[in-house]
Amino acid sequence: MSQIRLAVNEHWIDVAEHLSWLSADHNAGAVVNFIGQVRQQNLNEEVTGLVLEHYPAMTEKSLTGLIEQAAARWPLLRISVFHRVGALVPGDPIVFVGVSSAHRDAAFEGARFLMDKLKTQAPFWKKETTKDGDRWLDARACDTDAAASWD
């Protein structure tokens, strides 16, 4: 039975604290985490800000479903998923996904599965601010392919 932490909100992501929680299980021989950050350069333009919109009633439900799938598929001890919404600036963390497991294969795969699925299933949308105005980002085909590779 995995221990789970999940939050979607406007708060800063305290990476050190999340890593320490993931590592605290003494059966965790492996801890893997991913941090997604706001890029300063995207599609050849300077990005000055990013707003993340979401569908509040669906977001946590969708992420909980993905966490349950990961927990059923790999022997994960702890799973941590934090995603920010609202206004962010370049360099800000957007998402933290981390898992711990007895061995590294499960940890690497579990973390990658969660990120790949989050990218195509969880209802978040990014809108970037550039000097030429605001623009909604388009989904990328490579993300769809990555998510489908787990099915």
Partner: peptide, 29 residues
Amino acid sequence: VAVNQQMAGDEAMVAVGDEVALFPPVTGG
């Protein structure tokens, strides 16, 4: 399309009282 906060394909059914949402492909993470 999401029906009751779940992604829904073309064959999914919508009934009275369901919450239906429309949106572009997602871009979080």
